[in-house]
Design a protein around this nucleic acid. Structure first.
Lengths: 181, 181
DNA sequence: CGGGGCATGTAACCTGTTACATGATTAG
DNA sequence: CTAATCATGTAACAGGTTACATGCCCCG
């Protein structure tokens, strides 16, 4: 589970409130980890209870921004976690299940849904490419810049991967649905 | 959520017990969807309650195999689900979080962990390639064969993607850790 | 006939999602 | 001053994980 440590990393970069973090998860961190604002608020409360972050003291809690900053213990925990062993991630893509099911009981209208998603993935790919030319136009010199650029490149590659898979699937679905008619 | 429909698909192929299905999730379906045996048993009970599958009648329940087969309503539900709209999947890879955290508070021993996983992913890639040459050596003619082959190719491509990302990460981590020492 | 392994199942917990509620701020 | 919006939070639930329990079967 990576959410708490993703939040700690975001707080290393700068102290932030829950809504700040939610916005950054939408716009920046989003290409490799997602979180809703409810997850973020719950996790912030836990991180504070663990003594890894603290909220700048505010009496009122609802309705007003509440900025958190990372504590030394949180920074230490983050460093510990980074190199921790974890099980291998598996591909977990519902499209694969759908293709496999289509092989068993098709043909269906799956091609229409793939076309819809293809458009959205293509848009996302273009967004990422814009981020790349905006933020990483120069040849990287700093270690941290190179690492963050690599993360974005992986996001780009993942979208390309999906688009390629979708196009190959469409090719099969279309040719064989003609065969069947 | 795709697990119930992955199970339905598996049951279209042939009637199976929970342990049969768990074995197939380990060995065949595993490259695109994972499930533990507890998930499978719970989901089979739900599918039966929904009237989509039925268990061949056995009095005793614990300890003895219990085969399920798909019902016409289950097959219909599966066809309906295949072309259903779903939100776009996001990359969700803890390595990306770790690299991003490394950029913020590194250097750490992350390179050791990446090397470990790289070995495992390489093994998995080789396993998939063996499946491919075993099951899809001939040029595909049938629609269903072509679709299942595509799914396996996506698994292969995902592993290749991961391996490439890991190698690029190692390159950055190694060169800069030399810089720092 | 006893012990180990296998098939099934129960329970507790955690993460992630959805729906909704409440207080503060701001625009008009 | 009111309505819309923002920030925070509560509640309920579904999916996924881990630990463990129970009963059957088979092998020695």
């Amino acid at each position: 589970m990576s959410l708490p440590h993703a939040l700690l990393t975001a707080l290393v970069e700068r102290p932030s409130s829950g809504s700040d973090l939610a916005a950054r998860f939408d716009k920046t961190i989003g290409y490799f980890w997602r979180a809703t604002h409810q997850q973020i608020y719950r996790e912030l409360a836990r991180l504070e209870a663990s003594g890894w972050i603290e909220s700048l003291p505010e009496e009122t809690t609802r309705g007003r921004k509440r900025a958190y900053k990372i504590l030394p213990a949180g920074r230490k925990e983050l460093k510990r976690w980074i190199a921790e062993q974890e099980d291998l991630p598996f591909l977990r893509d519902d499209l694969m299940v759908r293709l496999w099911a289509e092989a068993a009981v098709g043909p269906t209208k799956l091609d229409k849904e793939i076309e819809r998603r293809l458009k959205l993935h293509t848009e996302r790919l273009e967004t990422y490419r814009k981020y790349e030319s905006r933020d990483y136009a120069d040849a990287p010199t700093e270690r941290d810049v190179a690492l963050r650029h690599l993360v974005l490149k992986c996001g780009i590659r993942y979208e390309s991967y999906w688009i390629q898979a979708a196009n190959e699937a469409l090719e099969i679905l279309r040719s064989s649905s003609n065969d069947h008619k």
